[in-house]
Write a protein that binds this DNA or RNA. Structure first.
Lengths: 201, 201
DNA sequence: GCATTCTCTTGACTTTCGATCAAGACCGAT
DNA sequence: ATCGGTCTTGATCGAAAGTCAAGAGAATGC
């Protein structure tokens, strides 16, 4: 009988390719990250990548899926943390992949793999945000709306590379947060009542 | 001496190519809109397009620039119109090019033509929105923040094709508007009863 | 009329990149 | 040692953006 050769160091090679792809994608973007460059950086032949990932889009999806898992594990374990802090932590995490925001949405229109990864991401993020807004005192309906707004806001911000000014970006998110969930339980600073139109900045 | 031949029907041909490109881009997206298909639809040879537009990205930029001009001319001439109505009109305009949102931001990273067009668009839109929020009673600082939020929100929404449910999309924008500019002068009752509590998708 | 000179058109070509294929190298089990 | 599956590779394809050289067409100067 034949010998079914085990998958050897498949996982290791796979990881090396993922690392190479992530490195290149985050620095050079999708287009400049050719499969040849990924292979070169991972130390394999040009087309060996296709043995591990069926297409460039699946590779992109795999890179982002891995990042998402890592990011989720690294987020503050809520409960005790202030809502602002949690949202800013989320923003910071997504910041690192900001220059892939446009790419992901563009590729999701062509690749079901990217679309599914993206869908899963949004599902997770939406759940997280909804819970945050519930904790901040919104009812289920408002929390759902606020979560959608916050997600769209973050993605909209990340579409523009020029938002390199992270302070202004954080400011914008906090400014919005204050208006979407004005009366939070946490008595940090003054949660100004909706009547007052004065800005906080 | 030579005869400097005038530009003949340059503008007409240019318009035909723009029309063909717009038709294809809005329906099939950037990738499926090959220069060959644009040329075919416009009734010229494959590479004749390059006589009128130096590159595919410049063609994309030209298409969107033209649309922007048309859209600006078609927007309600403000003043008397309610803020909600104006924002929704803007949203509806952008809706028609929603499936190019991701593409534009992706291409802007590679093409200065697209980047400049996009920059001009944002400048115009930001001015418009800032004025709207000023009219709605916000001070300059808040109006500037609100304009940024609203723009990011709209782009964030348009990133996702699934927001085909325009009612839910309008709902989300109005819900946000109410929180960003709560005490508006216009006493058109509440154009948005908070009762529109239905969640979307 | 007719050649000149510029505007525009075209088919053929180059280059780049994602993806495929056939052939074989490697290795573990029998 | 040999068989069969796992992996690797060089060669190659197909599509699409963009280039090039040659030429068609028309308006002006003669």
């Amino acid at each position: 009988m034949p010998a079914t050769r085990p998958h050897l160091d498949r996982d290791l090679k796979r990881k090396q390719i993922l690392d190479a792809a992530e490195y290149l994608l985050l620095r050079s973007g999708y287009e400049a990250t050719t499969m040849a460059r990924v292979a070169g950086r991972a130390g394999v032949a040009n087309n060996a990548v296709y043995w591990y990932f069926p297409s460039k889009d699946e590779l992109l999806a795999a890179v982002l899926r891995r990042r998402q898992e890592q990011a989720l594990a690294r987020l503050p374990t809520s409960v005790a943390t202030a809502v602002e802090e949690q949202i800013l932590a989320m923003l910071a995490q997504l910041d690192e992949v900001a220059n892939l925001t446009a790419t992901v949405h563009e590729r999701a229109e062509h690749s079901t793999a990217v679309a599914e990864m993206h869908e899963a991401f949004h599902s997770a993020a939406d759940g997280l945000l909804r819970r945050l807004f519930r904790d901040a005192g919104l009812d289920e309906t408002d929390a759902s709306q606020a979560a959608k707004v916050m997600m769209a806001l973050i993605e909209g911000i990340h579409l523009h590379e020029r938002s390199r000014d992270s302070a202004a970006r954080d400011d914008l998110v906090l400014w919005t947060l204050q208006r979407l969930a004005p009366n939070r339980p946490t008595a940090d600073a003054q949660a100004l009542p909706a009547a007052s139109t004065t800005a906080m900045n």
